[in-house]
């Protein structure tokens, strides 16, 4: 086991010694494993949703409930936020000063909040059309899956705020750096989940 082989490509911990680098590496690997476990949860909910597609019980179905326009806007917002987080990651690795990093992070945060707001508006519209989970198994399955993604985005936003706070208090130390790297993994992961939601829940529901 050579030390250099274990250095994480996304990190630049500066003069910190090799042991610290190993610990960080372990942490990020652990986070990946956690993501895999989380992905199982989403996978099972996707499978349940597909099984429940027929369970509308005479209530409104995908065609009555889904509005592709706003879903498309949500998709754009989330994809853009992933891009801005990518810019933040680059700033994290290559820039000495924190300013560009913080700006990109705030932009990302705003996009995340906008996504949540848009999604809530979407749910509100669905409720207005009678699309409440107590109406049918299909709508229940929808609301057990899509809001879970929304909750993940919310958690990611809270984490982002906390990390911004840590930058303000402690500066850009190795804790913040690994924190940001893990948050980045989560953020992009949520993008992937959303793409699955977009294609399976919305497009799949409509076909």
């Amino acid at each position: 086991m050579t030390r250099t082989a274990m250095r994480h490509p996304g990190l630049n911990l500066g003069p910190a010694h090799a042991d610290a680098e190993d610990t960080r590496e372990e942490m990020i690997f652990g986070f990946w494993v956690f993501m895999m476990s989380d992905f199982v949860i989403f996978g099972l909910l996707f499978a349940t949703y597909v099984v429940m597609l027929g369970g509308t019980a005479g209530g409104p179905g995908p065609h009555e409930l889904f509005e592709m326009k706003s879903v498309f806007i949500e998709t754009l917002i989330l994809l853009t936020s992933s891009f801005t987080f990518g810019m933040a990651s680059l700033a994290l690795k290559y820039r000495e000063d924190t300013k560009p990093l913080v700006i990109w992070l705030i932009v990302t945060l705003l996009l995340g909040v906008a996504f949540i707001a848009y999604e809530l508006k979407d749910f509100h519209t669905m409720f207005g059309k009678g699309g409440v989970p107590s109406r049918s198994g299909f709508i229940s399955a929808f609301f057990s899956l899509v809001p879970l993604h929304g909750l993940h985005v919310l958690a990611a936003c809270i984490w982002l705020i906390a990390l911004l706070g840590q930058i303000a208090v402690h500066g850009l130390d190795s804790f913040v750096k690994t924190g940001l790297l893990r948050l980045a993994i989560l953020w992009h992961f949520l993008d992937i989940v959303w793409i699955c939601i977009f294609s399976l829940v919305y497009l799949g529901g409509l076909t």
Partner: peptide, 18 residues
């Protein structure tokens, strides 16, 4: 829990649960 607390219909007999 969603079924029991928020009146979802994932596993109920009625309204399309399974």
């Amino acid at each position: 829990a969603l079924d029991r607390y928020l009146d979802f219909h994932m596993f109920t007999s009625d309204l399309g649960g399974n």
